[in-house]
Amino acid sequence: MDLPLPRTAYDIDFDDEGRDGHAFGRPPGLRPEQWPRGRVNGLPMAHLFTVRVPAPYRCAGEDLAGLSVFQADDHVADEVEGAADTIAGGAPPAHEPEAAAFWSALAAYAKDGHPRERYREDEIGGGWAWIRLTEAELAAPACPLPDPATKEPDQTDDDCVDAWRHDRPPRPLRVRARTDDPNAGKRYDEWGTSGSGYVGMHSAEGERLGLRDRFFDRCHFGGTATAPNGGDFGPFFLGFGETLGDPNLAGGGFAHLDLAADEIDWSQ
């Protein structure tokens, strides 16, 4: 879908009166069997946040008004052999009777997962998933947690996050238009080498405009980005740090989800 370049960037703030989604909590509009699962251990992924997407950033369609984002600590998880293949549509491997609920859940997810789920791995092997939601799905009740019986009986990934361990009360969000962000609609380019016109946060002009003081470490759609070690993402992006649902970004990292390319990256 071709969209005009956005003219406005938007901040995502915690607000007890907010009606634009929530961090933590549970995603709306899904069935438990559609809850994304990690490809390494097959556990339901942690729901980080669900947020209303401003109209200029709805790259997949005007009617897809929301976005739910999930994470799995696949880079440190103990592999359950056959989980990834089963999620990809293969037959579950031979297993003990007590693990039947786990393998049945993976097979059901492979067959009836949400049609708009996107799954990606980052550079260190961590798993990410996001689902675009219609207005009806965004306004729907929160999805119940998957049945704990669908956990593989022998799993002891105490260092890994999953839907059950990450489950916390939701914190409401509000999406607000930024004032005078010179980088709305521009591809990220901190040092001005691409000719996009992007004003780097640490450039002389960026310092004159106070971009760091105004926008550093803010969760947002588009505009001036917090990118500690650079990045490559277009003007249609969602930037978020560890405040937004407590993702594992190695303590102080910042992630950028390119909404047009359906890719995610993060840096410290």
Results as ranks from 00 to 15, higher is better:
Glu123Gln: 11
Phe70Gln: 09
Glu137Pro: 03
Ala129Lys: 04
Glu121Pro: 05
Ala100Asn: 10
Asp78Phe: 14
Glu135His: 03
Ala83Leu: 07
Gly66Trp: 06
Ala136Asn: 10
Tyr119Arg: 14
Ala140Cys: 02
Asp85Asn: 07
Ala99Phe: 08
Glu121Gln: 04
Cys143Asp: 01
Asp147Asn: 11
Pro28Ala: 05
Trp128Cys: 03
Asp78Ile: 09
Pro27Met: 03
Ala84Met: 02
Gly61Cys: 03
Met45Ser: 04
Ala129Gln: 01
Gly82Cys: 11
Leu145Ile: 05
Phe49Tyr: 10
Pro144Lys: 05
Glu117Lys: 07
Asp73Ala: 11
Ser104Leu: 14
Pro32Val: 08
Arg31Tyr: 02
Ile124Val: 14
Arg26Val: 13
Asp112Met: 04
Ala129Asn: 02
Arg26His: 11
Tyr57Arg: 07
Leu30Trp: 01
Ala91Phe: 10
Thr86His: 01
Ala23Asp: 10
Ile124Asp: 11
Trp130Ile: 04
Ala23Ile: 00
Ala105Glu: 09
Phe49Trp: 14
Phe102Met: 06
Arg58Pro: 04
Val40Gly: 08
Phe102His: 03
Arg52Val: 15
Arg39Ala: 07
Gly90Pro: 00
Ala149Met: 03
Pro44Trp: 07
Ala100Glu: 15
Asp74Cys: 09
Asn41Ser: 13
Ala99Ile: 07
Gly61Leu: 08
Ala140Glu: 04
Ala136Gln: 14
Tyr119Pro: 00
Ala65Phe: 10
Asp74Gln: 03
Val40Tyr: 03
